[in-house]
């Protein structure tokens, strides 16, 4: 068993045009920086990206939007990216905006073998259109489907060669669910550590979910809004 790759370029060698990719992160926090940059370099087109946000104009998924590699975005909040807004209002980009909790649960369900679930989020709104509504205990719920994705791009703090992962701070966010949900899950870690050095009690993502792992380089970890006392 070898899950270990040298770099992002080698790890995404079989990503193809028209693939669907989940990308972890909330804003620019916990995004797979190396994998995104490798994808820009590779030039893969017509991608469907599932990610809570769409980055900013010149970082994160914003880099893939700029190079017009994204056909469709599935996100909950995209307010930080003016190029995104421009492409959307001009009809150049397909966008599916869905509630953040539903986005998270559609990832979780996908990884847990649950094809669909009911949620109260969005009842009575335009996102409930054409979806099955069912009453439970007198309250309406919407049927939502698990995602299907070819790849999941994950950023973790530390990981071992087996693929056991831990995340740091709020950089965890969507990464653990997405790690369970990709047909192929590719992980970049800030620090690759020897097998056995991570305490089994504190593993966030068990190795079974991870197909490929490598140690990332040159993390910029850009902050969107530096707020201080």
């Amino acid at each position: 068993m070898n899950k270990l790759y040298n770099n992002a370029h080698e790890a995404i060698i079989d990503v193809k045009d028209n693939n669907t990719i989940m990308l972890g992160g909330f804003g620019l926090c916990g995004i797979p920086e190396n994998l995104i940059q490798a994808l820009v370099k590779k030039g893969t087109k017509n991608l469907t990206c599932i990610s809570n946000n769409a980055g900013v104009d010149d970082f994160g998924i914003g880099l893939l939007l700029k190079t017009r590699q994204v056909k469709k975005m599935i996100s909950s909040y995209v307010g930080e990216n003016s190029e995104f807004e421009r492409q959307l209002l001009n009809g150049e980009l397909e966008v599916d905006l869905i509630p953040q909790g539903t986005l998270a649960e559609r990832c979780r369900a996908a990884g847990a073998g649950i094809p669909a679930f009911y949620t109260p989020a969005g009842v009575g709104t335009e996102i409930a259109k054409n979806k099955e509504i069912k009453l439970f205990n007198g309250k309406e719920y919407i049927l939502e489907l698990a995602f299907q994705s070819d790849f999941a791009f994950i950023k973790a703090w530390k990981g071992d060669a087996l693929g056991n992962l831990i995340y740091k701070g709020t950089a965890r966010n969507f990464n653990p669910m997405m790690a369970t949900a990709g047909k192929i899950t590719i992980v970049e870690v800030e620090e690759l550590v020897p097998i056995g050095s991570l305490d089994p009690n504190i593993i966030h993502t068990p190795s079974i979910y991870v197909d490929r792992i490598f140690e990332g380089k040159n993390y910029e970890k850009r902050i969107e809004k530096i707020t201080t006392q």
């Binding site: 909950s76 909040y77 509630p99």
Partner: peptide, 10 residues
């Protein structure tokens, strides 16, 4: 304005 609902609907 197209920003999205974030977590507000949930």
């Amino acid at each position: 304005m197209v920003k999205g609902m974030g977590g507000a609907m949930d």
